Computed example of a mutant assay.
Amino acid sequence: MTLDAFIMGFSFILIHLLANEVIPSDRIKRLKWFSFSGGLAVSYVFVYVLPTLHKEQIIVKEYRDYFTMESELYFIGLIGVLIFYGIQKVVRKAQLNDKTHKARTLFWLQIIFFGIYNMLVAYTIISHDVLGIQAVFYGLAVGLHFVAVAHDLWREYADIYNHVGRYVLATGILAGWLLGVTIDLSPLIESIIFAFISGAMILNVLKYELPPDDEAHYLTFTIGVVSYTAVTMSLKFFFQW
């Protein structure tokens, strides 16, 4: 296990255990925080996730017996969108209708799926051997994404999240971290996992991290987008990421 992988995995675990401790309690500061982190997340989707998905699609061309088109991975990403959107819609519909045992049970379903989501995201990052300054910038974007996911779940049922939920999500990170440093899957399977998670991540970023109009601090959001994009593109240019 490299030091970079250890630091990223440990940081992601701490994020889920302590996420709500670091979010500012003041409303204005909190809105600026989520506007900035949302800007970073949107930038991450466009400057890393989508280009990498395109590269992965090129890789699977080697498996012509299974893939004959040029968009199979995008279809798998779409499946990720459908599954996570369907789960979240079912949970939120139950919460709007009542706050009974059924709604809380469905919230557990959401926690479990986000635990799996965390495991696959952590596995993808660790298994791709992201190192050095690249690990810092990609780890920062994913870390803030995890903070936003954790806060969103905490707002729904704080008691469940604080007592058990955050540990389930942290365990998902730990599982993905361990899988990433101990198991070598074929390039095809890794590409499929990345595509599925990319779809889920794009949904989560655009639907739940992009601040609503009445809660957005546009200047801070713009600073997040421009600064992260400028630095990442510069590093890509100079270091050929």
Rank of each mutant, 00 (worst) to 15 (best):
L169K: 07
L179R: 09
P211E: 00
L203Y: 15
L206D: 00
I126A: 01
Q88R: 13
F84H: 04
F237A: 14
H163A: 08
F137P: 11
T182G: 00
T52Q: 08
G176P: 01
F237G: 11
L40G: 14
E215K: 13
R104Y: 07
V164L: 14
V164K: 15
S227W: 06
D129M: 14
A216P: 01
H54E: 14
L169T: 12
M233D: 01
V60R: 00
A94E: 03
M8G: 11
D98G: 02
V142Y: 02
F6T: 01
Q134R: 06
I125N: 02
V168Y: 03
Y161H: 12
Y44F: 15
Q240A: 14
D65E: 15
D214R: 09
I59D: 07
V90R: 03
G132C: 03
G38K: 00
M8I: 15
V47G: 01
Y208W: 09
S37V: 10
N162E: 11
E70M: 08
E190G: 09
S127T: 11
V205M: 01
K55V: 12
E209K: 00
L73P: 01
A135G: 10
V42C: 11
V45Q: 08
V231P: 01
L178Y: 03
I173W: 02
T171P: 06
V81E: 10
A94V: 04
V47I: 09
K32I: 07
V49F: 10
I197R: 02
G224D: 08
H151R: 08
I7Q: 01
I87L: 04
L53S: 15
F239C: 03
Q95D: 10
I79C: 11
M69R: 15
G86V: 09
S71M: 13
A141H: 01
L174T: 04
N204T: 07
G132Q: 03
A170L: 04
L17Q: 05
I223R: 00
H151Q: 14
F34V: 07
Y123E: 10
E209R: 02
K89R: 14
W33F: 14
T171D: 08
A122V: 06
I76Y: 06
G165W: 10
A19T: 07
E72K: 00
A230E: 00
L14C: 12
G132M: 04
L144E: 10
E62P: 00
L153H: 14
Y74T: 07
M201A: 13
I160F: 13
Y63A: 13
Y208L: 12
R27N: 03
L203M: 10
S127Y: 03
F194C: 12
W108I: 11
R155V: 05
L18W: 09
I125Y: 05
V42L: 09
A150T: 11
G180K: 07
L73N: 05
N20K: 14
L96I: 11
I202Y: 06
Y208K: 13
